[in-house]
Write a protein that binds this DNA or RNA. Structure first.
Lengths: 232, 232
DNA sequence: ACTACGGTTGAATCCTGAA
DNA sequence: GTTCAGGATTCAACCGTAG
């Protein structure tokens, strides 16, 4: 079985750093991912029984090792888009700039209230996404601004503690990839990147270290595919 | 003449790194500044006769040396707010985090078009402002988000190539300082910080290495003070 | 009060040629 | 080889005016 049959269109449970070894050089059209931020995040901290456990590999900076692989996997003139917070941005930027040309940082203005230090800090109601170019990846849509207003996923609908809305991933895919492009997300989580690929006609490879989330991702994708087929 | 008589309410022309030596420890309530980004920026490059010359000290990273002094000058429980671009942010953050607790990064969404790499990059229509705390500086206004929509200064009204709107500086002052606070801007430029202080009842110290801009700043402040008095 | 239209501009980047 | 300076590029958002 070759790597394409093995990976494309499947959620593979496992450590992405190991799995990526089985993908040859210059074979991926884009990487879109939301790695663990290395902050050992515990969602719903105030709640007696938090809805989600802590994330695997969120207590270290192992994402930097994978960034070093991104350059090898990507084709020329393509991008890696990596989400991060304003507290991580500096470290992710300095790691990515070793291998890539960073042409933009998208500000995802998600709005809504916010927790944190109520007396001494403003609400951090945005996240950032570094657009790291290998070569010169052209934008496909019209040239737009870098501050994107997209509402966050309603907490009651969340199946993953750091879930991104499908819409913002679709917008990234439509700006930086063509139809049928092969998109990798090594930190798939609940499968948003794969769902966004299905919705926009891209092929995808998903990796997720947590078997429980890998299963949830598969369910989410299956649901999307089923829904999609209803309308064919 | 003591340092207060020397500096407060005056624009001092000179190198801030030298001038700051004459200000004692823990005597400043806030620093709000927009340092040269180290990019040797030339505004209106397409124009036959650009309106502004290049900025002094914009061809190096001397701002980092001044950041090291900020901690000494600030009182406990106060902030330094430093503007930067998404390309500088990582380096400014890593410098400031040595001395400060960074609790927020404000996104100034300024809107407008944008030049640059039209085919491969989105429009960068925002700048960032790092809010670096010495201790715990309380917010004074209501707790708001971090993405601030403020229009930029109309090009025809600009007296400095990287001029910030007075409104955004006022908003920073009102969030992080009390009335009568003493505010330092070591890179005063055309005097926006001082004007914002006058408008909001803060005392100020302004330093500017370029004598021409120091003079322009004085004019801008004088105009504001005169206008203010008309309405008393 | 609104919309429509024309003119202006941008903390840029690419490319080329000179030094 | 490398660095630096100057010219060309290009479009969405904004302002000001007119209707």
């Amino acid at each position: 079985m070759n790597w394409q049959e093995l990976f494309i269109g499947h959620v593979t449970a496992g450590d992405c750093l190991q799995l990526m070894r089985d993908i040859p050089d210059s074979s991926i059209d884009a990487i879109v991912t939301d790695p663990p931020y290395g902050i050992n995040y515990q969602s719903h901290k105030r709640t007696a029984s938090p809805m989600f456990d802590r994330l695997q590999n969120d207590d270290n900076d192992s994402r930097f090792e994978t960034y070093a692989q991104f350059n090898r996997l990507l084709k020329d003139n393509s991008v890696a888009v990596c989400f991060c917070s304003f507290k991580n941005y500096a470290y992710d930027y300095i790691e990515l700039i070793k291998y890539f040309d960073i042409k933009n940082t998208i500000i995802w203005h998600k709005g809504g209230g916010g927790i944190g230090d109520l007396k001494h800090s403003l609400v951090t109601d945005y996240e950032m996404a570094i657009v790291a170019h290998k070569g010169n990846c052209p934008i496909r849509g019209k040239r737009e601004g870098s501050v994107w207003e997209v509402g966050k996923v309603f907490a009651g609908d969340m199946v993953h503690p750091t879930e991104k809305p499908t819409g913002i991933i679709m917008r990234i895919l439509e700006q930086f990839t063509d139809r049928d492009a092969l998109v990798l997300d090594p930190y798939l989580g609940s499968g948003t990147t794969a769902v966004a690929c299905e919705k926009t006609g891209r092929r995808w490879i998903g990796m997720e270290i947590d078997e429980q989330y890998a299963r949830i991702a598969q369910e989410q994708i299956a649901r999307e595919v089923a829904q999609g087929k209803l309308f064919v």
